[in-house]
Design a protein around this nucleic acid. Structure first.
Lengths: 235, 235
DNA sequence: ATGATGGAAAATGTATGCAATATCGGTATC
DNA sequence: GATACCGATATTGCATACATTTTCCATCAT
């Protein structure tokens, strides 16, 4: 990443005109990496992000690191205070609970809109993902289960047919990922998750919007109850 | 803002310990200034923000300008695309409709939670605001009506007892303010607004969460229907 | 006339060094 | 012991220069 780095073959102008995505900037890569560390809990809430340490770690100057911090602020994952650096956003137990409450409603709303707007293609997609989730629940691959679970939710967001809602739901989900991840790794969550997903699916495919909303909200709220206990013990 | 600028008296360490805010960075000032230009319509959606032009305008280097752009991304006021600069965020008619849909639900959720959590003090507050709104509806002061109307909504947000939800609802409301304001200035909106607020209040005070949610959602959705027509005519 | 190519200019990304501010630890005072 | 002050150090903000990528325009081929 230094100036003496070997020259790369630049994409041709014609490749650019075919709307090929530009190569990611260092700032973007650092942001993505730090976001993952925050979501995974490796970087903990309240922790200071040291420009110099991160610059050294990624073998870049401070400039893209500072830009990465500001990009992370755009995702509300870090807090910036003028002249006082960046810290991983710390949320009080109360705020986490509130965010969960909102998230349950937003996911419920996604399910509600999906029950009105789901297409045959998306229905097939949801069912296919669920089948994969059932298959994954028999294994020991927790991360794999978690990833497919997220695919399931993403498909519901898409079926809702409201991009803005999907975006905001994702955003909130990312912000709470570290907290939520600790709960979904409970022993009997897999079976419960499958049952609850099935209830949500049944309501959506029956075009029952109240039930779709309620079953999805309850599915996410179950998480919230667990989180309440977890957070209480954590404080 | 150049290095040869006259030296300023730095705040003393004791002033600092009394939690005096640090002086605003150039990046923060530029962000605030551009945010105002965007809100006022001086910078129009889709417009490119030229680093060099802005740097020249503010007599600073490009560095704080770039940082300001990334800070603006945090407010979703500009869009950043790697290696392709910043543009004022452009909202399609579809996005506006989607945002309204989400807003109706979020305000509905505020009302729902308020129906469970309203205190006698907040009840009195809502009633007092409504009385002022009734008084204002007889006059010609549209702005005054609008301000009190906003107070009414703010009181519901507060009664919901979820700060995060209040914050996000406000945020969305602010983002759509310019579009919404064009509709609320219709001739018979005042009387309808009062009637609808009364329905919301009745449901909240009766602790009927479904009805509170539905009446508030419908109140805001009425706006959405009007907006749909308005936007269709606008395109 | 249209599309492809190449080079120059413009714009964006980054590194480096200096300026400005915050933090920390030691010392003095009450 | 608590508070204030001061100087040294560390951290953050910013300017400048260079590197990289994108855009624009002229030219050529079909």
């Amino acid at each position: 990443m230094s100036r003496s780095a070997p020259a790369r073959s630049a994409p041709t102008a014609s490749a650019r005109r075919n709307a090929a995505p530009p190569s990611a900037t260092h700032a973007e890569k650092i942001r993505d990496h730090l976001a993952r560390e925050i979501a995974s809990g490796h970087l903990v809430p309240g922790e200071r992000l040291d420009e110099n340490e991160i610059a050294t770690r990624f073998a870049v100057s401070r400039t893209p690191v500072r830009e990465a911090f500001r990009l992370l602020a755009a995702n509300e994952m870090v807090e910036l205070r003028g002249r006082m650096g960046a810290t991983v956003r710390k949320m009080s137990a109360q705020t986490v609970i509130e965010m969960f409450e909102v998230m349950a409603e937003m996911e419920g709303l996604c399910a509600r809109l999906a029950s009105r707007r789901v297409t045959p293609q998306l229905r097939a997609r949801v069912e296919e993902i669920h089948a994969r989730l059932v298959a994954a629940s028999g294994g020991q691959d927790v991360d794999g289960f978690y990833d497919i679970n997220q695919e399931f939710h993403e498909a519901i967001y898409e079926a809702a047919g409201n991009l803005y809602l999907a975006e905001q739901t994702r955003r909130l989900r990312n912000r709470t990922a570290a907290y939520r991840r600790r709960v979904t790794f409970q022993p009997n969550r897999f079976a419960n998750t499958l049952t609850e997903h099935e209830q949500v699916m049944a309501a959506i495919f029956a075009h029952d919007e109240e039930k779709a909303h309620a079953t999805m909200r309850d599915h996410v709220n179950l998480l919230s109850d667990d989180m309440r206990d977890f957070i209480a013990s954590f404080q």
